[in-house]
Amino acid sequence: MNKLAYRLRIYRSVVGMNIKEMLAYNLWFWSQLGAHLFLTIVYVSFWKALYSERETIAGLTMQQTLTYIILARMIAPLVQWGYTQEFGYWIREGTISSELLRPVDFQERIFIGHLTRTFVALAQQLLVTGSFAVLVFDIRLPTDPLIWLSFLISLLLGCSILFCFDWIFGCVAFYSTEVWGLQVVRGSILMLFSGVLLPLTMLPSGLQTLAQWMPFAQSVSIPVSLLSGITPLDQLGSIWLQQLAWLAVMLMLSRLMFNFSVRKITVQGG
């Protein structure tokens, strides 16, 4: 019991630190938000022009697609870049050995920090881009709290899956000196197969199958489809089950991979 209280205290300070860090870069924040808003306008205009030709595309109405696209755009910055560069930095600068000595599990601590940042960014996005979308683009967001709740849970699971993927990716990437290039490769694949750019049902069937076998759709396409009403709520059970299965596999792999890498570092004395 005492141990739990201790952990919670640490988590609270990790959460607080991450929020402070994010708010410190004021100018950065507004710049990113502005750039993001511009790109959202580009996307929405494109899709509106597209729907001027047809009533539905791949079975989706304009309202459904636009809601999907705007929500996916909001989540995109949260998943686009991951933390591979930071990861490489911890390992190269040798901070990882001191990190490993701390009483709280390293992966757990980084995970809490990462999740905090993700959800603070989501709140900012919902506030600014969300209200802009509702006011200017006439998007109707669901009012049913149940839908929001299931979206948030699904997003939490999705982000955890992606976190584990990035953890594995980070363990691989630090062998390369060109972390930035690898990260762009990761970003490109993620952009296409996570559903950030378009609802995955619009992809040709071959690419759709490929997307199903990658973990990326779990973090964007699945939660956003729930919130935009593309996926009906009665499928919730099977969706969560599927996400949990992904999470279990990815978590196991990430632990294995990390232990392997750490052994390697300690052997090399890096």
Partner: peptide, 25 residues
């Protein structure tokens, strides 16, 4: 390669959508 890939992803997405309609406006 990374620059090519990054642009490639957008282009594939655009192609995936536009193959379903003859033209936009």
């Amino acid at each position: 390669i990374s620059t090519v890939l990054f642009q490639g992803a957008s282009i594939i997405a655009m192609w995936a959508v536009l193959r379903q309609v003859p033209s936009i406006q």
